[in-house]
Design a protein around this nucleic acid. Structure first.
Length: 329
DNA sequence: CTCGATCCCTGGACGC
DNA sequence: TGCGTCCAGGGATCGA
């Protein structure tokens, strides 16, 4: 399932293989995952793909402006900047791979794979094809204000966000940390695998409320997440279902998963059996020993089992965390 | 604000 | 071999 490292891998592959190519024509088949199919049929033919970037779990196929040739100098400037300049993303095709999406170039003679819903004929004899059996993906042509507005819905880039900003976003919410990591308005790009892996690394229980994390815990979690994401990118992502990149290659990071998909197996750190529970509506894999359950609520039972609690002071935890809010917005 | 439930969708795993 | 059933999961949406 494509998350940040997988999408980054695909985007890099496409940047190398189709950037600079011109789209000659478009063929749509199933379109129920496309925002505005007519817009794609109307706007894409004749357009040049200037660059392919990742934005959270989205790929952004930036289109060269209609008339001008690619301005190499301008492209270089934009590529080395962390700031997304509005004029540099005036028009783009957004592609979200969902669970089973795949976007990759093929020779035109190659037979269409099953579930091929979109075909972009390129100017070099190849076709950029989008396949997606489950159609949980999404595709949209967006320009100008519409594009800017859409991108503003998302939170910070996990690899760029500062520890302070991350801590502010996490600790300002009472939602559980797992839910916060998956919330694309908080961070863009983190999915179930890397959320579980980073929580295990940081030894934080997935059901722990974000507001209950110490500042140091939040920093540890971010560093763990970033380290894992970088390593996963280096290994071209995780291929757990049938993920392959734009070259048809599988990733290798699934071999390094510590908890994801390891229910019942031994924790690499302490030997306890990895458990799987549902948090935020998603499977959450964790070590019940390394990642202690938060007190109160259903977690109280586990806490009581592990530590017979002091006799009387059963609920001295009235701290109430003075509502650090002011998180604006 | 946060939660759970529900829906979308298909292939793969599993049981008989 | 061939069903039928359950499940996975990102994200939108809705009611609580």
């Amino acid at each position: 399932m494509p998350e940040l490292p997988e999408v980054e891998t695909v985007a890099r592959g496409l940047q190398g293989s189709v950037a600079g190519r011109r789209i000659l024509s478009v063929t749509l088949r199933k379109t129920d995952f496309i925002d505005d199919p007519a817009a794609i049929e109307r706007e894409l033919p004749g357009r040049q793909i200037a660059r392919v970037e990742r934005f959270g779990k989205f790929m952004l196929l930036r289109l060269a402006s209609k008339n001008d040739a690619l301005d190499a100098a301008a492209e270089d400037r934009a590529a080395t900047s962390n700031v997304v300049r509005p004029e540099a993303i005036a028009e783009a095709l957004l592609v979200h791979l969902g669970m089973t999406g795949n976007l990759a170039p093929h020779h035109a003679e190659q037979p269409l794979a099953k579930h091929t819903h979109v075909t972009f004929v390129l100017d070099d004899g190849r076709e950029l094809r989008y396949t997606d059996p489950r159609r949980f993906g999404r595709m949209a042509y967006l320009a100008g204000e519409m594009l800017a507005t859409e991108l503003m819905r998302f939170g910070a880039e996990p690899l760029l966000v500062t520890a302070g900003e991350f801590a502010r976003r996490i600790r300002g919410s009472r939602a559980r940390i797992k839910a916060l990591l998956l919330d694309q308005r908080v961070l863009r790009g983190v999915g179930n695998i890397y959320a579980d892996e980073s929580l295990w690394s940081a030894e934080i229980h997935p059901a722990k409320p974000g507001a209950s994390l110490k500042l140091a815990e939040a920093e540890t979690l971010l560093r763990a997440l970033q380290k894992i994401l970088r390593k996963a990118i280096r290994m071209r992502g995780s291929s757990i279902s049938d993920f392959v990149d734009a070259d048809g290659m599988e990733g290798d990071y699934q071999q390094h998963h510590k908890v994801y998909g390891r229910e019942g197996e031994k924790c690499f750190r302490c030997g306890a059996r990895i458990r799987r529970i549902i948090v935020a509506g998603r499977s959450s894999h964790f070590c019940p020993v390394c990642q202690r359950a938060p007190r109160r609520k259903s977690g109280s039972r586990a806490a009581a089992l592990q530590k017979p609690r002091g006799v009387s002071g059963m609920r001295r935890k009235m701290k109430r965390l003075g509502r650090g809010l002011t998180s604006k917005r």
